[in-house]
Each structure stands twice: as C-alpha cells, then as structure tokens.
C-alpha cells in the first residue's frame, strides 16, 4: 500500500467526506465559531482595532433590527440580540478555558509519561505511581481544587514571576489542579498503551546495546504514544468540560462568566443553552482535531488494525 503512507491532499480529503447537508452546516458553524473567537481575541490584544474592547463585533441593535424585519424570526430577535451582546464576555471566558485546558494537558502529559513508565517498569516507583493515580482518581476533582484553593490557600503564594500573567492569580491554582489530576488519568491511558507494546520490542532494543531507559524512550514510547491517542482524546475532552469547575474557585473562565451573567440578568435559559453550545463546539473541535492527528501519525500495522 504505497498510498497509505502518502499524505493526502486537502482536495482528496474533501472529496472523501460525506457531502451531506448536515455535515456542511456543521463545518460552516465550526468555521463561524472559530472565526468569531479568533477575531475577538485578536481585537482584544490589539486594543480594539475592529470594535472597542468589550463591545460585540456586530452591534446588537443592528442584529435585532435586521431580524425583526424577517417574518418568522422576529420573535427570537431580542434573544439573539442579547446573545450578541454577550459575545465579548463569552470570547473572553473561552480564552481562559482554552488556555487552562491546553496548559494543564501539556504539563500533565510530562508528568504522566514518567508515571506510566514507572508503573510498568519500576519496582518501588511502581507503587508510588500507583498510589498517586489511585488517590487522584479516587477523589473528586472539585475537592482537589478546594484543597489547593481553600485548604492550602495557594492563590496567595503564586511566585512573583508568574503573578500577573492572568487577570487573577487563582488561574495558576486551577492549572496546577488540572495538571495534577489530569496527569493521573493520562498516566492510566498511557500505561495501558505501554503494556500493549510487545515485549520483544524492548528485548530487541536491549540486544543492539540500548540501555533499558533508552529502549523505553526510543522504542516503546514512540509506539505506545500512538496507541494512546484515542483514549488520550477522551482525557482532552474531559479536561475541556471539567475546566468549568475552575469557576468554583473564582477563575473567570467561560462557565464562571456565563453563570454570573445569568444570575445578574435572570436569563438562565438563553445563557445556559448558549454556554452548553459553546462547550459542545470546543469538545467537537478537539475530538475532530485528534482524529486528524491520529490519521496523520498512523503507521502501517500499528494501532487500530492491530487490536482486532
């Protein structure tokens, strides 16, 4: 199969996809969503070149007027205008949600790999690793955030170098919490993948003179991390969703800001439905993205078709 290793062109990918109406709509919605987010963020960093900071990109009044003129849509015009008015807040909160998720995922990964390796190949360290993952996976994430925030009052002891990077220092506490928690879950997924790598692989590595650690690094991990991608995607999705718990320790991320607007305006229905849709869009993007990554790094004979 020469074709299997050749990267596919964009044209081929589009041709491959099912051209149903629903799919096209979904792709269009995704493009609109990310376009809006990126333009909003850029606008904010550049100090409001497109629209004043804190103002929607499109004036809510104009939207309401336009919709009111369309028969059948007039009834929802005020709600839509309200949502448009919310967009700067939503974009701002999403930024923090994305940053917290991304940072925690990456930091957690670098803790998870040694944890997983220790669990499989270590002796004493295997027990340490087991203890860590069991403890972190056995208690609620919210309780862990409470320990860091209320119990240890870490927000007050953020190092000077990190302080002030985010609107509130408590963001660092959230990142720490999600990193420590996510590391435990990621370690479980990676451990499963490491165990699925054939033992002969490490023997072959040792036979050409690699040390045990080198064999793990050059031979086992490159394979294991590819196996781990599908389950690791779950952790990515979980983290996006559970980053909302940062709101409980006053991190002004997406859920926190939306919840505040809802209680201030009493428009629970609109706000919470929009909030749900926002998270859904983030989650769907993440899983589609990881599917692409999985395809990209696929190696003939490794992964999915091997498991059966």
């Amino acid at each position: 199969m020469a074709g299997a290793t050749r990267p596919r062109t964009v044209g081929e990918r589009v041709a491959d996809t099912d051209p149903s109406v629903g799919r096209i709509l979904l792709v269009a919605a995704g493009a609109l969503f990310w376009g809006w987010l990126v333009v909003s963020w850029v606008n904010r960093w550049l100090g409001g070149v497109i629209a004043p900071v804190g103002e929607p990109l499109v004036a809510p009044d104009a939207v309401e007027g336009a919709l009111a003129a369309v028969p059948g849509l007039a009834a929802v015009a005020p709600d839509v205008a309200f949502v448009v008015g919310l967009t700067p807040t939503l974009a701002q909160g999403t930024w923090l949600t994305v940053v917290i998720t991304g940072a925690s995922l990456v930091c957690g990964f670098f803790i998870a790999v040694p944890l997983a390796v220790a669990r499989v190949y270590g002796r004493f360290s295997a027990w340490l690793s087991l203890g860590y993952t069991e403890l972190l996976r056995g208690t609620p994430l919210l309780a862990q955030l409470f320990v860091l925030y209320y119990g240890l009052n870490l927000a007050a002891s953020v190092p000077a170098a990190l302080s002030g990077v985010f609107p509130r220092d408590v963001v660092w506490v959230a990142i720490l919490g999600f990193t420590l928690n996510g590391a435990a879950y990621q370690a479980e997924y990676i451990r499963g993948a490491v165990e699925s790598v054939d033992e002969g692989q490490i023997t072959a590595g040792r036979a050409i003179g690699l040390s045990k650690l080198e064999s793990i690094y050059y031979v086992v991990l490159p394979q294991a991390l590819r196996y781990a991608i599908p389950s690791w995607t779950n952790e990515f999705v979980y983290l996006i969703k559970y980053s909302s718990l940062a709101g409980f320790i006053t991190v002004p991320e997406l859920y926190y800001l939306a919840n505040r607007v809802a209680t201030e305006t009493f428009r629970y229905t609109t706000v919470f439905l929009v909030l749900g849709a926002m998270y859904l869009a983030l989650v769907l993007t993440a899983s589609k993205f990881m599917e692409r990554v999985d395809d990209r790094v696929a190696i003939p004979g490794l992964g999915a078709d091997r498991e059966r």
Binding site: K241, Y242, Y255, L273
Partner: peptide
C-alpha cells in the same frame, strides 16, 4: 448522546434545574 457527552456536567445540571 453527543450533546450530553460534550457538555460539562455543571452546565447540564444548571440547564435542567433552571431551564
């Protein structure tokens, strides 16, 4: 299923409680 699995539990709870 996709909607329920793609939404944080806290949002699901709020929607059910308030909406």
């Amino acid at each position: 299923g996709v909607v329920l699995r793609g939404t944080p539990i806290v949002v699901i709870l709020l929607v059910i409680y308030f909406v």
